[in-house]
């Protein structure tokens, strides 16, 4: 029982990280109509951007986090406006290919600058709190608490602000958004700021939980896609739930299967959903 609860804690931590990525991916998918394959590498970029601030100014990672987020959002917007924007008129699948190229470029730039070894924000081992026989680390509380705060903030943004509502409108029907007079490019820029920023937070959290590595984000891309599909593409709230489910299932699988195969579990779950209910497990959007 205790083991199960411990795995639940790990699953919620991992699920939080996956959710943050999946929610951005789902927003981008809904508005730009292509699966953004460089999303995992935006995680990595965010983690390394924060790493630079940590090393350069010798500050704790949480202080560096906003800078990592801002820089990653900026890079995401720059990539969109220089590359993706030029390809919007053609078929979405060309954007998909371009995003694979961007993924490899981002990863390789990180490798070029920081090498392919592992790095950490803070050396040393964190002593976990012991609570009713469960081990909980400070970082775990930060990751889960931070995710909850961000999800609430995102919810308020999407429901209450003009830009947030316009993002939902574009996700519903981008042609209608255009004839309504919505400034489509401005909304797309906002989408990248939010998607890129959330990806950076996810990457920083992932690096706090594990360590920095040039393919850390790419390795998480499959679970993130699985979460977005589970939640129903283009549905940010579904993506959050999908992320938590994927995180939990991946951790629950570890007593039965080598932990190396965690992504395979996410994949299996995704395939299952695709077979049984391709619109996602929640009330799916009509496609």
């Amino acid at each position: 029982m205790i083991d199960f609860l411990q795995l639940t804690i790990y699953g919620i931590v991992l699920g939080s990280i996956i959710s943050l990525g999946a929610v951005g991916l789902s927003l981008i998918y809904g508005i730009l109509r292509f699966p953004h394959f460089a999303h995992g590498d935006l995680f990595t970029l965010g983690a390394y951007m924060a790493f630079v601030v940590v090393v350069f100014f010798n500050v704790p990672v949480l202080v560096a986090l906003p800078f990592g987020v801002a820089l990653t959002a900026l890079v995401a917007v720059a990539i969109d406006q220089t590359v993706y924007r030029r390809l919007r008129k053609v078929k979405p699948v060309i954007l998909l290919i371009a995003s694979v190229g961007i993924a490899l470029i981002l990863r390789s730039v990180i490798q070029l600058v920081w090498g392919s070894g592992n790095r950490v924000y803070e050396a040393g081992i964190q002593m976990p709190h012991l609570w009713m026989g469960l081990r909980i680390q400070n970082d775990h509380l930060i990751i889960v608490g931070g995710t909850i705060l961000l999800v609430i903030a995102l919810h308020l943004f999407l429901q209450k602000t003009k830009v947030g509502k316009a993002m939902r409108a574009m996700s519903d029907n981008s042609d209608l958004a255009q004839v309504t007079g919505i400034d489509v490019n401005r909304i797309i820029i906002w989408t990248w700021i939010i998607g890129g920023g959330l990806a950076a937070v996810a990457g920083i959290f992932l690096a706090m939980d594990t360590r920095l590595h040039p393919v850390m984000g790419w390795r998480l891309l499959l679970p993130v896609f699985a979460a977005a599909i589970l939640g129903g593409i283009g549905r940010p709230y579904g993506a959050i739930a999908g992320g938590i489910i994927i995180g939990l299932v991946q951790e629950y699988s570890t007593p039965f299967l080598s932990p190396a195969y965690k992504p395979a579990i996410a994949f299996a779950l995704m395939i299952l959903v695709l077979i049984v209910r391709p619109t996602g497990i929640f009330v799916g959007r009509k496609v």
Partner: peptide, 13 residues
């Protein structure tokens, strides 16, 4: 916009 409320639809206008 099907997932927006009636009022949000009008606001988009």
């Amino acid at each position: 916009f099907p997932t927006l409320t009636v009022q949000e639809n009008l606001e988009m206008g």
